[in-house]
Amino acid sequence: MTQVKQRATSTEILNHVFRFRRLVAGPDGGCADVPCDACRAPHEKKVLKYIEADEPLHFVIPAFPAKSPNDRKVLGALPDMGERLALEFLQSFCDHLTHYHAPGARVTICSDGHVFADVVGVSDDDATRYRTELEGMVRSFDGSAIDFYALADAYRSTDYDALRTELMAQYAESLASLKHRATQDENVRGMFNGIHRFMFEDRIAVSEGRSRTKVREEAKPVAWEVIRRSNAWSRLVAETYPDALRLSIHPQPVHSEKIGFHLVRTRDRWLTPWHGVALETGDGMFLTKRSHAEELKASLVWRGNRPSHFVAPHLTLQEVMS
């Protein structure tokens, strides 16, 4: 394959990937609809390396930590239809890339549940059960393009308190440095605002009788620590998989080195399966919060003796996303 053909193939691959971008709000110069050369530039060298080697593209995505403890958002502590949809999408995404690059692609889910379980009110046992169930889901549909990597894999131990301490000692940025960057970088501020909203929603759900203002203030240091932990894990992942293309479940700018990535359709650019539920309408699946599905008078579906998702066949996807 000539260099010209390789570059054309790289452009096709990245344009396909960008169809699923999860972008931050704000002006994008039209790049949200039509990716430009600057959108592709941070990733092109890695894509070309896989094309030249005739090997499957490799993506990594720090994601699928554990279910939110907020029962206004989710159906329980274990994966449900939302996770299944996301995992099946990742498999089909890798399958589709064989159209542009015959060896296809694979994706490593760098599960970060144990990285900040103690901060967000999730037990390490729940995080472990969550990952075990995810692996079972992948096996159930022969998700051969998907594998997993987690804190225990990185350090060959399950003493999670010790592992978190080691991770932060090796890879964490100081809180003062992170806060200073937030004053200079609107993307860091946007990240804080998004994580702070999640932490506030989760804490207010278990803070009956306490003022929203008080809970909102208490959620701020938690949000900063989640970001510090998440960034530390990202650095370890980057060091472990230096050649992999980096996907993110958080919204990213159009010209970012990380590609913000939608796993399931949703109207909320921040929502994920572990902070929501799947809702099946008369014409498609949609990710939303449990409280929203209940407000729509959707019916709960059980599978395998536990709640799976909601159905609202009398509604259209457009109606629930409006």
Rank of each mutant, 00 (worst) to 15 (best):
Arg7Met: 01
Ala8Lys: 06
Ser10Arg: 01
Thr11Cys: 04
Thr11Gln: 03
Ile13Asn: 01
Leu14Ser: 00
Leu14Gln: 03
Asn15His: 06
Val17Met: 07
Val17Asp: 03
Val17Asn: 01
Phe20Leu: 05
Arg21Asp: 03
Arg22Pro: 00
Asp28Glu: 12
Ala32Phe: 05
Cys36Gln: 08
Arg40Glu: 04
Ala41Tyr: 02
Lys45Gln: 09
Ile51Tyr: 02
His58Ile: 02
Ile61Val: 14
Asn70Ile: 08
Asn70Ala: 10
Asn70Cys: 10
Leu78Ala: 14
Glu88Leu: 05
Gln91Glu: 15
Leu97Tyr: 04
Tyr100Gln: 02
Pro103Arg: 00
Gly104Pro: 00
Ala105Asp: 08
Val107Ile: 15
Thr108Ser: 12
Asp112Trp: 06
Asp112Ser: 09
Phe116Gln: 10
Asp118Glu: 13
Val119Asp: 07
Asp124Glu: 14
Asp124Tyr: 14
Asp125Val: 11
Asp126Ala: 15
Ala127Ser: 13
Tyr130Asn: 06
Glu133Asp: 14
Met137His: 11
Val138Leu: 12
Val138Gln: 08
Arg139Glu: 14
Ser144Leu: 13
Ala145Tyr: 09
Tyr149Gly: 04
Ala152Met: 07
Asp153Phe: 09
Ala154Ile: 09
Ser157Asn: 15
Thr158Ala: 12
Thr158Gln: 14
Asp159Ser: 13
Ala162Arg: 14
Thr165Ser: 14
Met168Glu: 10
Tyr171Gly: 03
Glu173Pro: 05
Glu173Tyr: 07
Ser174Asn: 04
Leu175Met: 13
Lys179Asn: 05
Arg181Gly: 09
Ala182Arg: 05
Thr183Trp: 01
Thr183Lys: 09
Asn187Trp: 12
Asn187Ser: 11
Val188Leu: 05
Phe192Asn: 07
Glu201Gly: 01
Arg203Leu: 10
Arg203Val: 02
Val206Gln: 10
Val206Tyr: 09
Lys214Thr: 08
Glu217Asp: 12
Glu217Gly: 05
Glu225Lys: 14
Val226Tyr: 03
Arg228Tyr: 04
Arg228Leu: 12
Ser230Pro: 03
Ser230Trp: 00
Glu239Phe: 00
Glu239Tyr: 06
Thr240Gln: 12
Tyr241Ala: 03
Pro242Val: 08
Asp243Met: 06
Arg246Thr: 05
Leu247Ser: 13
Ser256Gly: 15
Glu257Gly: 12
Lys258Thr: 09
Lys258Asp: 15
Ile259Ser: 01
Gly260Phe: 14
Gly260Trp: 15
Thr266His: 11
Pro273Trp: 09
Trp274Tyr: 14
Gly276Ser: 06
Ala278Tyr: 04
Gly282Ser: 07
Gly282Lys: 01
Asp283Lys: 02
Arg290Ala: 11
His292Val: 15
Glu294Val: 14
Glu294Met: 10
Lys297Thr: 12
Lys297Arg: 13
Ser299Val: 02
Leu300Arg: 02
Val301Gly: 05
Arg303Ser: 09
Gly304Lys: 07
Val311Met: 00
His314Arg: 08
Leu315Gly: 03
Leu315Arg: 15
Leu315Val: 01
Thr316Tyr: 00
Gln318Cys: 01
Glu319Gly: 00
Met321Tyr: 00
